[in-house]
Design a protein around this nucleic acid. Structure first.
Lengths: 185, 185
DNA sequence: CCTTGACGGTACCAACAGTCTCGACTAATT
DNA sequence: AATTAGTCGAGACTGTTGGTACCGTCAAGG
C-alpha cells in the first residue's frame, strides 16, 4: 500500500456541488444532475466520483444545511425547552424554500436507496436531538412515540400541505406532547 | 349538442388498468407506464385518454382499494373506538405490500401535480373518517392536531421505516391520543 | 352503410440518470 | 526533471421512462 499520489480532491468543487444542489432545491427548479453540474461548473463525473447517486448528493447538501438547527440552551422546564425546540423546528421547516427542499429529498429517497439511507440517518439524528431535550427532564420516560408524533406531524403536513407548519403549530404540538409525557411518567 | 355516438368506453379496460397498477405496486416492481399498459393488455393511449398522468392512475387505483378500510361499529367508548380504528389502520398499512404501495404513491404525488391533488383528497378522506370517530364521543373538541398526530406517525414511519407500523403501535398511539383528547375537553 | 369515437399496438420524441472517454492539470515518488 | 497516479471540466453516449402521434380495427348510433 503506497501513499497517495496524484492530484488531490478539490474541496471547492465539493462545496460548489452541494451549494448548487441546495440552490436548485430552494429555487424550485428541477434538480437534475446536469443542472447541478452546470451550476457548480463541474463535470458530471466529478460528482459521481464522490457520490453514488444524485439523491445522495441532494441529501448530503440538505443534511449539511440542517446541522444549523441544534437544540438551544435550557429554558428551565420541559415545557419551555420542548416549545423552544419544536417551534423553532416548525418555523424553519415551514418556510417555502425549506418545505420544497424537504419534499424534494423525500422524492429522492423514495427512488434511490442511497438517498433513503442518508435520509434515515438524517431523521434519526433529528429524533435524537429531540430525545435529548426530553431526556434532560424525564430521563426514565419512553419518548419514542412522542418523538415520532412531533416529526410525524411535521413531515405529514409538509408532504400533504393541508395544514400550517409554523411557529404556532409547533407551540401547540409541544404543549400537547409535554403534557402527554408528564402523564406517562 | 348531439347525442353520443361511436364506440363506448370499455370498463373492462379501465378495471384492468387499475388492477395492473396496484399489482405492480404491491409486487414492488417498477411501476412504469409501459408495464401497466403491458400487464393490462392495453394501449398506452387508452390510459392517457382517461387519466392525465401516470400518477393519477396509480393514485386512483390505490384509492379504490383503500375504500375497504372504513370505521367499524362503535365499541361503547372513545377509547375502544379509537383503538379499533387506529389499530386496524396501522395493521393494514403496515403490511409490506401496502407499505410499498403507499410509498409509491407519495413518490408519484411528489412529481406529478395531478397525483398530488388526488393524494390530498385521499388523505383528507382518511382524516375525516378518524374525525368522525372522535366526534361521536367528543363533539366539541378540536381534534385537528390529534388526527394529524395519528396519521403523522403512520406516514412518517412508513416513509422512514425506522419503527414498526403494526397493531401494537396503533393501540399504543390510540390510547395516548384518547387521553390527550379527554384532557383537552 | 356511413360516421363517430374508443380500441390495441407501435413508432416516436424529449428529458434524465448514469457511464465512458478525453485532454489538461497537480502532487507525490523516483 | 521525469514519471506516475489520480483529479479536474467537458461533453458524447446509452438506456429507460413519461408522454404524444399515428395506424388500422372495432363497436354503436343515425
Amino acid at each position: 500500500m503506497r501513499a497517495h499520489t496524484g492530484r488531490r480532491r478539490n474541496d471547492e468543487a465539493r462545496a460548489a456541488i452541494l451549494t448548487a444542489a441546495t440552490d436548485l432545491l430552494a429555487a424550485g427548479e428541477p434538480v437534475t444532475l446536469g443542472a447541478i453540474a452546470g451550476r457548480a461548473q463541474v463535470g458530471k463525473q466529478t460528482i459521481y466520483r464522490w457520490w453514488p447517486s444524485k439523491g445522495a448528493v441532494v441529501l448530503e447538501a440538505m443534511t449539511e444545511r440542517a446541522r444549523s438547527l441544534a437544540p438551544t440552551a435550557s429554558t428551565g422546564s420541559l415545557e419551555g425547552d420542548l416549545e423552544a425546540f419544536v417551534a423553532a423546528t416548525f418555523a424553519a421547516a415551514g418556510t417555502p424554500e425549506y418545505t420544497a427542499t424537504l419534499r424534494g429529498i423525500v422524492a429522492e429517497a423514495l427512488r434511490d436507496e442511497h438517498a433513503a439511507a442518508v435520509l434515515a440517518e438524517f431523521t434519526a439524528d433529528r429524533r435524537e436531538q429531540l430525545y435529548l431535550v426530553i431526556e434532560r427532564w424525564l430521563p426514565d420516560v419512553d419518548a419514542d412515540l412522542a418523538v415520532d408524533q412531533v416529526y410525524g406531524v411535521l413531515w405529514y403536513r409538509i408532504l400533504i400541505g393541508h395544514a400550517a407548519v409554523d411557529d404556532t403549530a409547533g407551540r401547540q404540538l409541544a404543549a400537547t406532547i409535554a403534557a402527554q409525557l408528564r402523564a406517562g411518567s
